[in-house]
Amino acid sequence: MADARPSQLFRNKSAKIAAIPMIVTALFVFVGGTAWTIVYSFTKSGLLPRLKWVGLDQYERLWSTKRWIVSIENLMIYGLSMLVLVFVIGFILAALIDQKIRFENTIRTVILYPYALSFVVTGLVWQWILNPEFGIESIVRSWGWESFAFDPLYNADIAIFGVLIAGLWQGSGLVMVLMLAGLRGIDQEVWKAARVDGIPAWKTYIFIVIPMMRPVFITTLVLVVTGIVKIYDLIVAQTGGGPGISTEVPAKYVYDMMFQANNLGQGFAASTMMLLTVALVVIPWAFLEFGGSKKRG
């Protein structure tokens, strides 16, 4: 028999070898790429990266650019509205489908279907639907309501809500399916117990069922939030950022700066700001969620 305890480093060799490609990818692409981007955001890089330090100049320029400010505002408006509405709509749809209805599979498929489309298709479709010449507005006017006006994409003040409609149309199905899975996981006897206790259905949902669905909500939240932060293709396909700069978003700003305006340094600074924003949200949450787990056992 072996005299000494074998080294921990060499145990489970095959598993460790199999993990190496992913470890390398994570280290070089994600961590390395992020660090590289942050470093070069302090340089005066133009078409090509150059290590010519300019300190915080790129950030000062970024925060004095109207387009960036509008992008951030749009992301906030779109993000908060999307987050609240997609959860409300998705949950209500799931609760309705959970009432032992007929043709459940068909309805579920229909509602989930938009999620199978790419954002480019969704964007184009909703661009047409919201187009006053041949979309909803022209249909309602052809019915006789001549003064009807519904052209959000042509009004700079509300154009972002036109994008929001398309985003909700595409995203609600996924939330509904996740919520439905969560609802189905609730023990039917809990519902019975609540009925015997005389608790109305809406109260049972709010005080008993939704708290029981916390893990599903967290999964859904992560999916929805990442979808919001990286929104880019929907904007490009539906509005191209317009009218004017009224529907610009940070991801589009980064892309345009890096590959159209040949201003890498500015693009890096913008993407670093995006990273910082996400980190400010995620890190405190992660501490709350996982830091306390030792106490709970």
Binding site: A193, R195, V196
Partner: peptide, 18 residues
């Protein structure tokens, strides 16, 4: 059920977990 003057105990306990 709540108006019938009954109390019920279930197999899975059906307690409100939170």
């Amino acid at each position: 059920p709540s108006e019938r003057g009954i109390g019920m105990v279930f197999q899975s306990y059906a307690l409100y977990p939170q």
